[in-house]
């Protein structure tokens, strides 16, 4: 190991703001977001890329930010949960989550919202099976998923996406 890892300057747009930042080459994207930029809405629940709590949009696609190094997003555009409703007005999807009681502790919720909003972007009227498939990479330990699936379908019916 080396005590001080090599670092690199990256430029990345996150929630509409452009950041220029020197990051250690080994730093995970999720730690860059959370520890360096204080965007703590993106969470960590595992070491292995299974849980999906860290899901963000990278150039419009949902990805797990613990599975990327920060240096890999140089030049990219990212949306995190903080960017879903920047003016504080909840999106139809967020409202549906609350109405359907699709969150309890709220720890998986940001990742769920990012996966679900990406689904609704590409498929505004998903079937229940399509919702389940889209969320299979996101673990929730509180709800058993039933209300989450219902919330996504409610949001689809209301015509709202992200």
């Amino acid at each position: 190991m080396t005590a001080v890892a090599a670092s690199r300057l990256i430029t990345v747009e996150i929630n509409g703001v452009t950041y220029e930042h020197e990051v250690p080459a080994r730093r995970l994207l999720v730690h860059f977001l959370r520890d360096d930029l204080a965007l703590t809405g993106t969470h960590i629940g595992c070491d292995t890329g299974n849980c999906g709590a860290c899901t963000i949009h990278l150039n419009g696609e949902p990805v797990k930010s613990c599975m990327l190094l920060a240096v890999q997003v140089d030049g990219a555009s990212i949306t995190t949960v903080e960017g879903l409703a920047p003016d504080g007005e909840l999106t139809p999807l967020q409202q549906a989550f609350s109405e359907a009681h699709a969150l309890q502790c709220g720890y998986c919720t940001p990742g769920m919202l990012m996966s679900a909003s990406a689904l609704l972007e590409r498929n505004p009227h998903p079937s229940e099976e399509e919702v389940r498939i889209a969320l299979q990479g996101n673990i929730c330990r509180c709800t058993g998923y039933w209300n989450i699936i219902e919330a996504v379908q409610r949001a689809a019916l209301s015509g709202g996406s992200a």
Binding site: T40, G41, F97, G106, L113
Partner: peptide, 15 residues
């Protein structure tokens, strides 16, 4: 509780 949690504004210990 929902409003803060839905916007990534919850405060969990690692935050």
């Amino acid at each position: 509780e929902d409003r803060r949690l839905l916007q990534g504004q919850g405060v969990f210990v690692d935050d």
